[in-house]
């Protein structure tokens, strides 16, 4: 008998872009479609599309390679979904924004600002005991900056989740 769950090696993160009619319940239907088939949503961005009637969802999901085609088909089948496509990292421009609040006082502030400058992050709030950095870029770059900031006291970390757009004249 073929095992129902394939080895964990085939599990990876996928970028999906979903164009969907802006109707009540659309998000819940899509979320159910993924969770029922064992796909875990890692990030989800929903915003208005080109017109108010349509929304754009960018979802990164973690799940088995083998089940991905099926879950895309099931998602495309939803009445509200206009298009659901998977995109390789190589074929898209991807961006994420993060706001990082660091508990830091004057003596070590310069060190934080140096890291921020290197990653082209902006300082958007500064107080006696804390500062907030804003960084935009590929999720890897944000991970790298956060890695560098770990030695400080990161009080809060808010990430928007990844958004993507297809390069060239391809549709997202």
């Amino acid at each position: 008998m073929i095992p129902e769950t394939a080895p964990a090696a085939s599990v990876r993160t996928h970028n999906l872009s979903i164009y969907v009619a802006n109707r009540p319940g659309a998000l819940a239907r899509i979320a159910q479609t993924f969770s029922r088939r064992g796909f875990n949503i890692e990030s989800l961005v929903v915003s208005p599309g080109k017109t108010a009637e349509l929304s754009r969802m960018t979802i990164t999901v973690k799940g088995e390679e083998a089940g991905l085609e099926q879950v895309i088909q099931q998602c495309s089948k939803l009445v509200d979904v206009v298009a659901c496509r998977e995109h390789d990292d190589a074929e898209v421009v991807s961006r994420e924004l993060a706001l990082v609040k660091i508990r830091v006082e004057a003596p070590r502030r310069a060190e934080v600002l140096q890291i921020a400058e290197y990653f082209r992050a902006k300082t958007v709030d500064m107080a006696e005991q804390a500062m907030v950095l804003e960084i935009t870029g590929m999720p890897d770059k944000i991970d790298a900056m956060i890695g560098m900031l770990r030695k400080f006291d990161i009080e809060e970390l808010i990430r928007t989740g990844k958004v993507i757009v297809a390069r060239g004249d391809r549709e997202t």
Partner: peptide, 14 residues
């Protein structure tokens, strides 16, 4: 209900 009973169907995803 003030809408016409033959209101158009709007299903861009179907």
């Amino acid at each position: 209900c003030r809408a016409p009973l033959d209101a158009p169907v709007e299903l861009p995803g179907y």
